[in-house]
Design a protein around this nucleic acid. Structure first.
Lengths: 352, 352
DNA sequence: ATTAACTGCTGAATCGATAAAGCAAGGAGG
DNA sequence: CCTCCTTGCTTTATCGATTCAGCAGTTAAT
């Protein structure tokens, strides 16, 4: 380190060329009131000196930071574990990169002064807006943030926040659809559903989709719902000690893939064959479903596309184009693999 | 958004209390030259108005952004796919959060004006420093960045950049160690090594460790090295069509878990038993090794701890404490699972 | 009693970029 | 010939926070 070569500023370029700083600023912005010959000289000098405008100076003057925040309300440990986050980050950064906007990742670890970290980021105008993900149904901070008048787009379903911008999938329909896959294409009739934590909208919706499916096919009496928490362990726990096969459940619908994977291990440990004795399906397809053995049939949630769209909506909001809240719902795809009995190569390398 | 409630500034707080802006600034900073009674009134007013200092104003004046960049030189698609990145991000954010510093994720997608995006971030002083990860041995941008005098810490091994700060693991020793595990504990003698792309230091080091191990035990003649590229597919390709078992290789050392997983699928497809006919080991333990069937014995690289330490070193550098480059090497752990023949429960839920 | 030091605040300068207003010189139009 | 519009720049104000230099008024020291 030692020598921290003072950064090149507008003034440096101006002196080099022999014009005012304002002229340099205007020339670099392509303003027509600066002569073409001067503009060329300024551009050349800027390039030669390696001038890059100070983001702080620009942000202060323009009242715009050219950065957006990706907010992860849940604890760092928990959510980063889900590779869901990786997909979201990819979507957000690619949309932001298209506009030369920085992405900052904000968690709410420091709960100092009653303000969550991401609220601070917004109020300090470190970011022009935020994409918020993985919020539980109960999070009051999200409501505050969405109601604060600051540009925010939520990923997920928030029927209780009708005035918020959001991007999601139809969890109810998707869950009903994959349940019906078990019923109609595999003839399963005695179904178990393992939910996520029921204070999450996602968990509730997926459960409701399951219930609609069994009700619609007259299988409600033989169906059962047990609450999990989206963790692998809870999937394991939910199926352990139950009866499957001929005189038990012949299908299990897990509300996500992590639980399905945990369930798969438990079923194997207790000697049940999948999909022979019991068919298993998951939800999400963020990674583990493809690599598990047997590979897990699931609903692919387009996390990256959702994040990209959410980011686009956020920019529209920041630019003031949109003033009326938007709600986007993306289609999902049923991915047929081995755990439900659909044929599948041992590995689908082309899958991802 | 219609009503964008103009942000609360220092001036607003000052007017409310009836003092100068300077007094407010000093009071909030805990300066002793402001009377205790005035300080209390200022603090109360600031809290009441919900004052949060503008990061742009502060950054401009202090010449410090209180943000660091996490730089991912490779293409977004490629690297985010590796869940390695998730671990790194967790480590960086947790270290940054401890200091109330923002983390921004920077890729080099926009190659505009010859400057990579992350170099722009540094020169625009959007970030005070950068943690750089996943750089190939060949990347000239990294050298430029490291030589630029800006605070940078690299994650990985960069013997060709002796004046750079870096944090890594001893890939050579680790690779030798896991190879010897196959030799000494499982009696394997005919070993195949599948490398990563050999323009990556990591790939070269792991190959060298493998070669040291076979040479040390007189198995060099029966050993073979084939080049892969760290992708699942290349692991598949590397073992397909080869002979294993009694008259072939009885052990394969993959340079990472993704390739090991691909290799596992290929071996299964061709009817070889793992670990019966052939023992398999990987490297990294970023996720897939635990959930594969059979689970993959591997070297756990402490990505999160490396990232956390790298971030700590970066802050030391930014604060100017450290002026002489540091090089940290973290210990790795051999994780014994099923693919090498070490006993293992069907799933180790406590593992992660 | 006079100087020195301290206390508690205010005023002004500063960080770097931008945009509005200003101003000189030249050309067009009446 | 005088006004009016361009053209091509410069001056100046501004964004919000910080910090140094001042400046009254008080207390301590000699």
């Amino acid at each position: 380190m030692a020598k921290s070569p003072r950064a090149v500023t507008l003034k440096d370029v101006a002196e080099r060329v022999g014009v005012s700083a304002a002229a340099v600023s205007m020339a670099l912005a392509g303003h027509r009131r600066i002569g073409p010959e001067t503009t060329d000289r300024i551009r050349a000098a800027a390039a030669e000196l390696g001038y890059v405008p100070s983001s702080a100076g620009k942000a202060l003057r323009r009242q715009r930071s050219d950065a957006i925040a990706l907010v992860v309300p849940n604890s760092t440990q928990h959510v980063f574990g889900h590779s869901y986050f990786t997909h979201v980050l990819t979507g957000v950064t690619s949309a932001a990169n298209d506009r030369d906007v920085q992405v900052l990742v904000s968690t709410n670890s420091s709960e100092a002064s009653g303000l969550t970290a991401y609220e601070r980021v917004m109020r300090a105008r470190t970011a022009d807006g935020a994409v918020v993900t993985s919020a539980g149904i109960e999070d009051p901070n999200i409501e505050r943030l969405a109601a604060s008048g600051l540009p925010v787009v939520l990923i997920g379903n928030y029927p209780e926040l009708p005035s918020a911008f959001s991007v999601g999938v139809d969890d109810v329909a998707a869950s009903r659809s994959i349940t019906e896959h078990l019923i109609l294409e595999h003839g399963r009739t005695r179904l178990l559903h393992v939910t996520g934590p029921l204070d999450h909208r996602t968990a509730v919706d997926r459960r409701d989709g399951f219930l609609q499916a069994v009700a619609a096919h007259g299988l409600a009496d033989d169906a059962q719902v047990v609450e999990g928490d989206f963790s692998e362990r809870s999937g394991w726990v939910a199926v352990t000690g139950r009866r499957f096969g001929a005189d038990g459940f012949d299908g299990v619908v897990f509300a996500n893939d992590d639980m399905a994977f945990g369930g798969l291990q438990a079923l194997r440990a207790e000697g049940w064959s999948v999909p022979g004795d019991v068919a298993v399906v998951g939800f999400d397809d963020f990674g583990i479903a493809r690599v598990a053995s047997p590979s897990i049939t699931t609903v692919r949630v387009p996390a990256e596309a959702m994040a990209r769209l959410a980011t686009d909506r956020l920019f529209a909001q920041i630019e003031g184009e949109d003033s009326v809240p938007t709600r986007d719902e993306l289609p999902v795809v049923l991915v047929r693999r081995a755990s439900c009995g659909c044929a599948s190569p041992p590995i689908d390398l082309l899958d991802d």
